[in-house]
Design a protein around this nucleic acid. Structure first.
Ligand SMILES: [Zn+2]
Ligand SMILES: [Zn+2]
Ligand SMILES: [Zn+2]
Ligand SMILES: [Zn+2]
Lengths: 190, 190
DNA sequence: GAAGAAATGTAATAATATTACATTGTATTC
DNA sequence: GAATACAATGTAATATTATTACATTTCTTC
């Protein structure tokens, strides 16, 4: 036959294999999608898996490179479409300052699916360390409440928000606190 | 003779001419720079003037095109360097979601130079209308206070922040409120 | 299994931003 | 008013991020 030899008949694009830990997170994500009537395809699962394997934000083109294995040559739209899907379903976040992506922390830490879309989707705050590039997701509701208040004042219909803070994380600040002068925004009660 | 902080008198790159209103804002900006020991060159003044002429955020390459007059062919670094300068001195803001730039509202509305760098620099909130593309700068201090509080909890040294809200402005919401279904973030009074 | 919808493949291109190095302008010192 | 050092700009090339448009495949539903 002229057909290429495919390892499996069920999946035309054999998924990456990830650690058991990440596979578990991927299963949770899949459950969340099913719950929302969305399809977690092999492609999307691969992209999410790759994002989960990174300790730091990943760029779309990094993901693209990592997808290029075993004779597959995906193009940018492949990655961007998967990213769009994952963003829409609250599984990842885009860090605007970095043009890069991180998994939603709920995926990492919650064992049940609960109010994910309500509490987390589009409403988190991100602390970006300039030193070690780590991004921490904070789920403080006060910020959103304030923004809602502001928008109400302005009669502005709020649809999504980005709240990002750049600076130095606790770990890095401790590592070399004596070496560098502080460039902190003046804190008035510290 | 008085050491006036003007763009060089025999400038090899003749500055654009702007409306009296914008020239006035440019003069204020120049005064702010002088105050900070920075040089408002003709190039930087031109870029700021162009940004001020726009009612909406402008991209770097739009500015680049607009600078191409009277035999001048500036390249991207020219614009990006000017933008960096203007950002550093709090004269403009970068809207991360749009990769575009707007003048700091203080430049438009304050007649004296006061605590610009303290209150405005890097700490404002931006309301981005998806419909008419207008961006409104809000100077609510509560958001920053909350972020400081969060960062203190995390021992995170805060250096700069982005707070952006996308949605529909009052004007656009009124224009066609009956036509479109509301896609607002669910308000939790339910 | 045929029709329609959703997802993916593919090629090309658009939009945004940076690097590296040469040149020119400006301020300071002598 | 040169010499100098530094700041700013010019220039070419390239890097990075993202989208468009259209063909093909896969999945769902009937
Ligand atoms: Zn999240
Ligand atoms: Zn760090
Ligand atoms: Zn401002
Ligand atoms: Zn509007």
């Amino acid at each position: 036959m002229m057909n290429m030899p495919r390892p499996t008949s069920s999946s035309p694009t054999p998924p990456h294999s990830f650690s058991a830990h990440i596979e578990h997170q991927l299963d949770k994500a899949t459950a969340l999608c099913t719950q929302q009537g969305a399809r977690m395809t092999a492609q999307r699962r691969d992209v999410l898996g790759l994002i989960l394997t990174h300790a730091h934000p990943v760029g779309a083109y990094d993901l693209l490179e990592e997808l290029k294995t075993a004779g597959r040559r995906p193009a940018p739209p492949t990655v961007y479409r998967a990213l769009d899907f994952l963003l829409e379903h609250g599984l990842i976040h885009r860090i605007e300052r970095l043009s890069a992506f991180i998994p939603c922390t709920n995926l990492r830490h919650c064992s049940h699916t609960h109010e994910h879309s309500e509490a987390c989707l589009h409403t988190a705050q991100f602390l970006i360390c300039r030193d070690c590039k780590t991004v921490t997701e904070i789920a403080d509701t006060t910020v959103l409440e304030t923004l809602k208040h502001i928008c109400k004042n302005e009669n502005f219909v709020i649809q999504s928000t980005s709240v990002e803070v750049e600076g130095i994380c606790a770990h890095c600040a401790a590592k070399h606190s004596a070496t560098h002068p502080s460039k902190e925004i003046s804190s008035q009660g510290a």
